[in-house]
Structure formats: C-alpha cells, structure tokens
Design a protein around this nucleic acid. Structure first.
Lengths: 164, 164
DNA sequence: TGGTATACGTTTCTTTAGGGAACTGAGTTT
DNA sequence: AAACTCAGTTCCCTAAAGAAACGTATACCA
C-alpha cells in the first residue's frame, strides 16, 4: 500500500483495513498468536526486513494492537504483546487460515490444527450464523443500512439502481 | 506491499495473503459483495486509481477470485463477478467488518447490518466454536501441527522453546 | 577490565509500486 | 459524423519496500 489513507472511507471494512490492511501487519499478528514476541524472533520467523518490521510494530502500537514492554532480567530483552484489541483480530486470522487451507491445501492435509486449550477439542471452520443460530450461505447474505450508514452504503445502492 | 511474494511461506495465512493481502483487493471484494461489478462503478465507489484497479482486477482473475464477462446488449458493457472461491472470502470481509464496527464504531451505531436474505434475520458476529459448538475465547486458542505442517509451525515451536 | 557477542533497532541506497491525469479506442446516441 | 460513454493504458512523479551496513546499549567471559 502507498498509505492510501482509508481513513476517510466511511465503512467498517475500510476502517479495519486502515489499521490491518497490510500483509505484513497480518503476518506479524499471526506470529504473535503463535507466541513469537521478540524483535529478532519476529524478523527471523517472518523473513521481513528489519526496517519494515520496526515501522509496522510502531504503527501497530500506535493503533493499540500490540504493546511493548521490557522484560525483567536481561536488560536488552523486550517484548511485543497483543492487546485485547489485537487479540480480537483472531477471527480475521482464522478466517484467512480457513480460506487458505480450503483453497490452497497441501496434499498431506492441514498445516495447522486449531484447538481449544481447555477441552483440547478442535475448532470448526468459521461460519456466519443468524441470531437464531441458522447457518447462512455466502449467496444469501444481504446488507442493509444501519443507523450509522454513510456514503459507501448509499453510493452502492445508487449504483445498483442505475444499472437496473 | 512491494510484492514480497509470500508464495514461499508454508502457512495457510501467508498463502491467503499472497492472493488477498492487499487492502485494495479486499475493498474490491467488499464492493463486489455489495453488487458493484463494473469498472467505472468500482472506480467511483472505491476512489481507487484506474491503473491500480485494472491491475488488481487482472490479478484477481488470475487467482480465480472473480471472472469477467461481456454483458448482453451494450457492446461496451462488461462485468466482474465473484467466483465461488471469491465468494468464500465473505467470512474474511465479515470478520473485518465486525472488528471495525467493534473497535472503530460510529456514535450512531452500525454502518451496515448484515442479514440472511431468506429469513430477514440479522447475523450474529462471527465467533470461533469447537466442533461440539462451544464458544472459544481468543485466549484459549492454541495451535498444533497438522499433517501438512511445515517450516513456519516448527520454527515458531523452536523459538518458543529457546525462550523458555 | 578489555574484548567479543547479543538484542534491538536506524540509516543508506536502490528498486518497485501507487496516485493522478491525460490518452486511446471501440461502441453508442443524436 | 460529432459528441459521448465505457473500459482500460500510458506517463510521470512520489512514496514505500528490500538488503545490507552501521549504531548503541547491555551482557558474558577470561
């Protein structure tokens, strides 16, 4: 991205992408979910350039996705840790992982299995459900203006209208 | 991104990001889910430069996320439409939308409500569930090697080990 | 206590991608 | 046939990415 500033686009997806709409940011999150927390480790694990890593980490701290602390003991050691806001992105990562496994599978099977720590049970792929719990297929999803609807929603409506 | 080629990273998330790890690509998908399908309309709806839009559309066709067809009638009219593979990314978009609404809300409420077309019912936010249907909080998710596990998984394990 | 190693970055340089606006060209309307 | 529309392409400039060297504080070790 050339910092296109999605800030002005009045859409939840765009707002999200303003903060995480960058592949490296998402891969850093993935590593963070795998408990890789230190600069050198992230650099090695991701194969990212030190420059970009350092920039991204700063931005992510700025957005409140991770926080930074010195570790006790070794005075050099520092750690980047997920905040609640960052940890909430787990759904996004899982969605990407599900899709990657589904459409770019390996012959041998899944690369990673995702488990619930307490029960040891495996997770099922994420699926949209209605409030009453009925599964919804992608094709039968529709959008409607919410109370905070803006430009993006109404523009799409207008475009659909003029093509009809 | 400077086309960092995540192709070689043996991880489902990286594989997914190779194809959709770009903010514009995801915003194009969002517009596609809102039934915006034509070049001019996408350009206007997104405020993207024509150059980048044309590049992205080509890449997305190459990856099989959308397909391209001439419309009957007006010989100029063409349309980009989601494939099944592309439509499957709905979960990713919904996850981003949920997160955006949750952490960057508007005072007036949600920008968009997401409904099931047939029942008219609203969707609930996506949540990870175990196979048996128990909700799982982000903190209690753990990863385990699957049959197709590779580099990325074992590297993380090794890093955790040496820091312990 | 001086020397080497480690952790965590920053700087510099080159390559590549993005934004914007003008241009092209086929098809359409008047 | 002139003007307009749709769907791109081309060109120029600026802004990020990658690689690798450099900087700096702390730690280990003889």
């Amino acid at each position: 991205m050339a910092r296109s500033s999605f800030k002005d686009i009045d859409c939840a997806v765009a707002q999200a992408l303003e903060q995480v709409g960058d592949a490296w940011t998402l891969l850093i999150l993935r590593s963070a979910f795998m408990d890789v927390r230190r600069f050198e480790d992230l650099q090695e694990h991701l194969g990212i350039s030190r420059k970009v890593l350092s920039e991204r980490l700063k931005r992510m701290i700025g957005h409140g996705l991770i926080e930074y602390r010195k570790l006790p003991g070794d005075g050099r050691a520092k750690e980047y840790r997920l905040t609640d806001k960052g940890r909430d992105l787990h759904v996004v990562i899982l969605a990407l992982m599900d899709w990657g496994e589904a459409w770019m599978p390996k012959r041998w099977g899944r690369r990673i299995r995702v488990l619930d720590r307490s029960s040891g049970e495996e997770l099922r792929p994420l699926r949209p459900l209605t409030r009453s719990g009925k599964p919804v297929s992608p094709r039968s999803i529709v959008y409607e203006a919410g109370p905070g609807a803006g430009e993006v929603f109404y523009a799409a409506e207008q475009i659909r209208a003029r093509r009809a």
